[in-house]
Nucleic acid binder design. Structure first.
Lengths: 202, 202, 202, 202
DNA sequence: AATGAATGAGCCTTCATTCAT
DNA sequence: CATGAATGAAGGCTCATTCAT
């Protein structure tokens, strides 16, 4: 199944339409029951006709793939910026936590749904690569800080953060500060450091 | 939407058929693409006619709700047994970890899918209650061990374990022993205890 | 694309439905504009719901393939009966002409449309084989009568008959007798025999 | 349905565009699967925007009607030239055969497709008239040569030639010479003359 | 009860056609 | 006039669910 977007229209209007469609899909994932994620509904929420939708995407999956790509590359950009930064390893890990927090907390329902969709979707190779690069970059940072950590550890840490943030988001927590502290507890705890009085969050 | 199984013949045969249907759904969730989870396919795998299926369940969601309930109550039973036991608080927490590990690792794909389905489903109040009871029991155990832990902490711990186990299951890990250790690291780490050389796994 | 019918239901009702559907397609081909040959219309004319139609055929093409097969095998049966008969070669050719006449004249519009559809369709291997067998059998008969005739000649003769009958049918001729004479003129003429006073038609 | 090309600028450029569009349709009919004969594809192959296409033709059918008309009037011109010529009746019939051969063999797939389209299309009155004039002219020639031949006979002859040529074209024959001989056999055979050693092809 | 044929709302997608730029 | 983005009716097909046997 072709999963690539169809054309990046040369008129400005076209580019806007394509991303309107993707955003509409995101909004539906966030706010409605998953079974309303139909192409017709997407078109409707994008304020576009169904015909237009299919001028930009060859099928429903392509829309979702675009959405996944969009989110993923945003996060990857942040993470790479952190990795490339001059900060110390602990500071980088904190920054990583913050990045994850921002990303998932910005639109938690969306993040959650996308996680599921990614598994279901036969994601394109490009998105696949984004995922790998993301994982690698994070692994590098973690191992720079905690040399004894292996790939599993890095994966665990990412999973742990995901899980905690999701749970918090779903139960409607709003106290980002407390949440960040718990994330640090979890991560540094897992990495084997006492995190009592470890650092002043800010 | 009605989600209860259809009350009827308490005969052994009827009960068996109903649970055959539920188990068929489980097997499909485990082994096939999610879009093959159709009522006709469920009936087929259960070795029942589609007509019969609808004699036992008023609709598809009811089957899934039953499945969720089945899994949940299994876990709840284990957890309650642990809670009621005479072991020390740390041993209880370890037992909790083991219970979770067993549950999710017995049929990891199923566990993963159900997690998603639970969110999608308009879970019945009974299942809702199971969830609450489960959370409460776990919270009690955790707080008995770590008095400073609040509800959030208990939730976080459950989420952490879920996440690590899922990730492990997805990536095809089989080393249950190593996994248990990492779970303990994560939990005790989060709870703020150094877990270096803390205890002999068994 | 799968082109085979889906199930030959074990209940009598089922078998009837499947052939009702095929016949409905035939009727539409005969009597309506080709662009009304939609699965919905077929179902409607068959007096069946669209859902039922798709229980018997996996897609539109399969219905048409069944129809082609039905017509072809009817004709093939006739032709093989003729080939196997004890009649003289000339009588066999006459019988062939009559068979063709009957077949195409019974439902001329249908015959015409099917001819076109056959080319368009990726006909299944079975139907393909029917066609080959048909052509071979006819070739054999023709060459038995006119040894100098090659494959082209046999093909030409079939084409000639098709064409004449179609034209006649389309322009609404009803004089089968006269038509048969013209067909004989054409065939025997092509085969190089004087056909003046050649034989008494009956 | 309006089937006429849109009257407009008689400028050379306009005329060229219109015939580019018609020719693009022809090329698609020849070289691609019939279901790619979409207006957008036609415009694309004509090197015109879809908007422009609709400036020249009110709808898709009008394009095809123009194409049919183009082919028909070409043939009609040839046939009328033959009819008006000074040659003997037999020579005229031969010329007729050659004309048909050239026409259909020049672009056999196109000829075949158009034949089908003509039936499907609600051909405009003008094209209808072309067909009639064509048939009449041919009938005249045939009857001049074979006075006993009636309208049916002329129709049959045309049909016969069509059919043989089509069959040859479909099966990929390239031996025009042999084909011409078979056509003559068929025609003269049908008209009741022995065609053995009848005439030297050229 | 069990069976499985039948149902039809609704999904994805295409394509002829229009219209703002 | 040309362009190409936008439109939406309509087609193929699925699947949860019903109902006659």
């Amino acid at each position: 199944m072709d999963i690539e977007p169809r054309k990046q229209g040369r008129q400005a209007r076209a580019k806007a339409t394509a991303s309107d469609i993707v955003e509409a899909a995101a909004r539906i994932l966030e706010g409605e029951r998953m079974d309303t994620l139909t192409t017709n509904r997407i078109a409707e929420r994008a304020g576009v006709s169904i015909g237009s939708l299919y001028q930009y995407f060859p099928n429903k999956e392509a829309i979702l793939a675009s959405l996944v790509r969009r989110e993923r590359s945003n996060l990857l950009a942040d993470v790479q910026r952190i990795a490339a930064g001059a900060a110390g390893t602990a500071a980088k890990i904190d920054a990583l936590i913050d990045a994850g927090l921002e990303h998932q907390f910005a639109r938690p329902r969306l993040a959650l749904q996308l996680e599921y969709i990614e598994q279901t979707l036969d994601i394109g190779p490009e998105a696949q690569e984004l995922a790998t690069r993301l994982a690698d970059t994070i692994t590098d940072i973690v191992r720079a800080h905690a040399p004894h950590a292996d790939r599993n550890a890095a994966r665990d840490i990412v999973a742990i953060c995901h899980a905690i943030i999701n749970t918090a988001a779903i139960t409607g927590e709003t106290d980002t500060k407390g949440l960040r502290q718990r994330l640090q507890r979890a991560v540094y705890g897992y990495l084997g450091e006492s995190n009592c009085g470890y650092r002043k969050a800010d």
